[in-house]
Write a protein that binds this DNA or RNA. Sequence first.
DNA 1: TTGTACGCGTTATCAG
DNA 2: CTGATAACGCGTACAA
Lengths: 338, 338
Amino acid sequence: MKRSSAPTLLDVARRAGVSTATVSRALNDPALVTDSTRELVLRAVDQLGYTPHFGGRALVSNRFDTIGAVIPTMDNAIFARGLQAFQETLSDAGVTLLVASSGYDAARELQQIRTLVGRGTDGLMLIGMARPAESYAFLDRRRIPYVLTWNYRCDRKECFVGFDNRQAARAMAHKVIEHGHRRIAMIAGITAGNDRASDRVDGVRAALEEAGMSGRRMPIVEETYSLSGGRRALAALLERRPRPTAVICGNDVLAVGAISEAKALGLRVPDDVSITGFDDIELSEVTEPRLTTVHVPHRRMGEAAARALLAMRDGTTDRQGIELEASVVERESLGAPS
Amino acid sequence: MKRSSAPTLLDVARRAGVSTATVSRALNDPALVTDSTRELVLRAVDQLGYTPHFGGRALVSNRFDTIGAVIPTMDNAIFARGLQAFQETLSDAGVTLLVASSGYDAARELQQIRTLVGRGTDGLMLIGMARPAESYAFLDRRRIPYVLTWNYRCDRKECFVGFDNRQAARAMAHKVIEHGHRRIAMIAGITAGNDRASDRVDGVRAALEEAGMSGRRMPIVEETYSLSGGRRALAALLERRPRPTAVICGNDVLAVGAISEAKALGLRVPDDVSITGFDDIELSEVTEPRLTTVHVPHRRMGEAAARALLAMRDGTTDRQGIELEASVVERESLGAPS
DNA sequence: TTGTACGCGTTATCAG
DNA sequence: CTGATAACGCGTACAA
């Protein structure tokens, strides 16, 4: 019992007693046909429940009205939030969103890029810049418009829509130093293949150097994006002698894990140890104490990325970077050293 | 000067010195060609950076290898998590994911469903069951396979992949009663047009009735999915006399907001007031005290939904519900009344 | 204003 | 095992 396939333009044409060309015109550019024939066509369309076949249309027009995004994972709230804004902006422009995830794996990312491009995308949103030359080569050869987000580098030609992770981390470190801390340690995300994570480390190191300390010798632990990672890392850092008085974390999840470990160890935050985050996700407002962190404009970033992509697709704009602000928001987890 | 568009099968064929048919075979069913010609083809593909044109393929095969999801919003961590698992499962099957969001608005959901269907989807994942008959009518007429998730009803014919919100909430309420509470209140999500939220309310009411209390008279406040909503709601509930000794929340975000308000009011949780959640998101493990909540298998739900859809598309299975377990996880925010 | 006819890139059928 | 060729559904010159 093979399902009757969907009605085609020809079916509509026959029913309305006109040619397929007329139907196509009545649907795509109504001004080109008389009111009466349009009426006829529309009724036939309605009766048959006709919808244009996407494949046929894409084949001839070579436009897909589709834009893709490859992100590490939606499990991470910051990407989910950015993606939501991205999708909304696209939807308002009549474009649908294709989503793929890389799981922070460059090879998998390239594979997903290939799939999306093959599936027909008018543009692509990617996270960060650390990826093999092969991936860029593919993108360039296929001449697919793409934007890189979640980071910003003034020295790169690619179209970045994001904020300067290095500068933001540097600002946070300066703030910590301002509070009088000298024994500063860091819990970073995994930096391999992740420019956001490594830029944040670089920023903190730069700030230490600027204040006359050694960035190179700063105690640092890398951990995966998880509460337990933050807990483990803090425990390890606190074994050090002299003990750090402030721990700068590469993201909020690590920071919250660190806070919970500090409390479990009987330490007061920030009196015994200061802890800072990065991202400003919801989590950071419900910890006790609330987290001093870097606010990242995830939604605005997603919107801006969508708009940039749309403009590139329409040829309105050439690729051109957009830098957004990420600034320190002071709450209670950073204080003076005891 | 816009000459080179994407390379086609013909380009590859010419470069490899074979026919287009051979290229197609080498790519889709490698066993059908000799090793040497396959080698030739693959090299040409690689040199040209060829990717199959989706439109052409969809046109002839009438398969899109695309499945869509319409969710309220990715901002909500529970949907993001489920969607991630959904996407991964799809990707493993060579299917890409189209995402649209409804913002909890039924009209907008239908519009998005229309877009996705018109765009060519082999199936659709939707959240919950509360939507106008019009939406179901459209789906049925277009004969699009779809699954309803995040809820489960044994009395409905649609394919549900989810858990029974009502029963889970009922179990939680029974647990609260077991701890000795008699003055129980509830902070619910907005129930209008949201069957998950209203089923949770129903479940709690049922449990109260079963324990000889009035479900109808239970103090209840509805609030939007936000920390501040939880705060507001708890403040309002605590004005009541006699004051409730336990507050059951419709989700974790509301519960965490409620906890933070309780503490701000100088109340101890659970000594002065017990608070429970629903969802078991990451947030629930970092509050002080940790949240007693209902664990929902978001990832497994996303996976199961994807598999069900894939099976329906392939005609392997007819629509058939899949019920998952959601069970109470006891932590520290629920105690005995003082 | 409307119809005819072709081509878009791919897969499938049928010969060789 | 491989090649020629006919669909697939649609948009659009071009002709009427």
